[in-house]
């Protein structure tokens, strides 16, 4: 008998009913979020010490390059940027910034487009795909994220897409941090030390 057969033989039993599984999710206890003020709720979570992300607001997508340049200049970072091959971003005028689409091992800054923002936690939701590599968002010292205000949802349950899943679906709620030495919090353990969200009201 294979290990699989042996394990499953010891676990024989009636199959679960979908109704029973769903009943476990009725009215879940979770942080209260004002659905009428999702942007404010999201920004309040983003500013919590545990997330400690900065943010900027633009009205139209074409203002994105200027917002990125402003952020990099304010942090004394070089005007170079790792940008994913997302056609939406290519519509912007990036003159003044040097772009590349593969992250270096010591990448300074990377831009990414969040599919959603979650007001409950201040999380940014990403999904991998041909237009959205994953690694740059973990290698860069400055993680810069474009999020459309209309893409802010209330709770974490609203984050997953129905149907076939992307290779990776991930939530970023702050920067790479550690408390492994004497419980003291240090930013930039392995990945980003700074997280900057550019909200687009377009």
């Amino acid at each position: 008998m294979s290990a699989r057969e042996a394990i499953l033989a010891r676990l024989k039993g009636p199959p679960p009913s979908a109704a029973a599984a769903e009943a476990l999710l009725i009215a879940p206890e979770r942080p209260v979020v004002d659905a009428a003020a999702l942007e404010a709720e999201f920004l309040a979570r983003l500013a919590l010490p545990s997330v400690s992300a900065s943010h900027d607001v633009i009205e139209r997508l074409e203002q994105l390059p200027a917002a990125v340049a402003r952020y990099l200049a304010a942090h004394g970072a070089a005007p170079t940027l790792c940008v994913p091959p997302d056609p939406v971003l290519r519509t912007c005028d990036w003159s003044g910034l040097t772009l590349h689409d593969h992250a270096a091992p010591e990448e300074s800054a990377a831009l990414a487009v969040a599919r959603l923002g979650v007001a409950e936690t201040g999380s940014l939701v990403f999904e991998t795909g041909p237009r959205a590599p994953m690694l740059p968002n973990f290698l860069a010292l400055h993680h810069i994220v474009l999020l459309r205000v209309r893409d802010i949802v209330a709770h974490l349950e609203d984050a997953p897409l129905a149907g076939p899943q992307p290779r990776a679906h991930y939530w970023v709620t702050g920067v790479s941090g550690t408390t492994d030495i004497e419980g003291t919090y240090v930013r930039g353990a392995h990945g980003p030390r700074f997280l900057h969200v550019i909200l687009c009201r377009d």
Binding site: S123, P130, L156, R167, A168, Y170, W171, V172
Partner: peptide, 15 residues
Amino acid sequence: AALTQYTTFYTGPKR
């Protein structure tokens, strides 16, 4: 914390 900084769901290998 309300959530860990990085929460990832991996579904299969690279597409």
